[in-house]
Simulated scan of single mutants.
Amino acid sequence: MKMNNPPRRFTPMTQFATSYPVLLIDSDAPIRELHNCISERLNAVLPYLSLMACTNLPDYAENDINTVANIAKILLQDVSDVFRVIEQRGFDVPNGCQPI
């Protein structure tokens, strides 16, 4: 059965290699779990990029640098996608109520 749109509960992640969303974010997941997901990715990619920033480029082949850039791009896009879900939930407040 082919779905044209995923259920509202699930938000598609940005796809780089597919035309159909295969990775979805559970928009109803607890905020703490969503935060843990993005924290894990940021804590993985930031030291990785810092290491690469301090590396002498002639030591590595151009293909290696492209691989590093692609890994960082995918992880940071995941972070951006989950942040979007958190923001949508965090800013969806009843009229008259302001977020703290």
Rank of each mutant, 00 (worst) to 15 (best):
35 H>Y: 12
35 H>F: 08
35 H>T: 14
36 N>H: 05
36 N>M: 01
37 C>E: 15
37 C>V: 06
38 I>V: 12
38 I>P: 10
39 S>D: 14
39 S>F: 13
39 S>R: 10
40 E>A: 12
40 E>L: 13
40 E>C: 08
40 E>Q: 05
41 R>M: 04
41 R>W: 05
41 R>N: 11
42 L>N: 01
43 N>Q: 01
43 N>K: 02
43 N>W: 03
44 A>T: 14
45 V>A: 00
46 L>I: 15
47 P>C: 01
47 P>I: 00
48 Y>T: 01
49 L>F: 06
49 L>C: 00
49 L>V: 04
50 S>I: 15
51 L>V: 15
52 M>K: 15
53 A>R: 03
55 T>N: 12
55 T>H: 06
55 T>F: 07
56 N>I: 05
56 N>R: 09
57 L>F: 11
57 L>T: 13
57 L>M: 13
58 P>H: 09
58 P>D: 04
58 P>C: 05
59 D>S: 09
59 D>F: 04
59 D>H: 02
59 D>L: 12
60 Y>V: 15
60 Y>S: 09
60 Y>W: 15
61 A>Q: 14
62 E>A: 15
62 E>I: 14
63 N>C: 15
64 D>S: 07
65 I>N: 07
65 I>K: 11
65 I>C: 12
65 I>F: 08
67 T>Y: 15
68 V>T: 02
72 A>M: 03
72 A>P: 00
72 A>R: 01
73 K>E: 10
73 K>L: 09
73 K>C: 09
74 I>H: 01
75 L>G: 02
75 L>Q: 03
76 L>E: 08
76 L>I: 04
76 L>D: 03
77 Q>A: 07
78 D>K: 02
79 V>A: 06
79 V>L: 07
80 S>Q: 02
80 S>C: 02
80 S>R: 08
81 D>F: 03
82 V>I: 06
82 V>S: 10
82 V>F: 10
83 F>M: 13
83 F>S: 05
85 V>R: 09
85 V>Y: 08
85 V>F: 11
85 V>N: 07
86 I>A: 05
86 I>L: 11
87 E>Q: 01
87 E>F: 01
87 E>L: 06
88 Q>N: 12
89 R>M: 13
90 G>P: 02
90 G>T: 04
90 G>Y: 07
90 G>M: 01
90 G>L: 08
91 F>S: 01
91 F>P: 01
92 D>K: 02
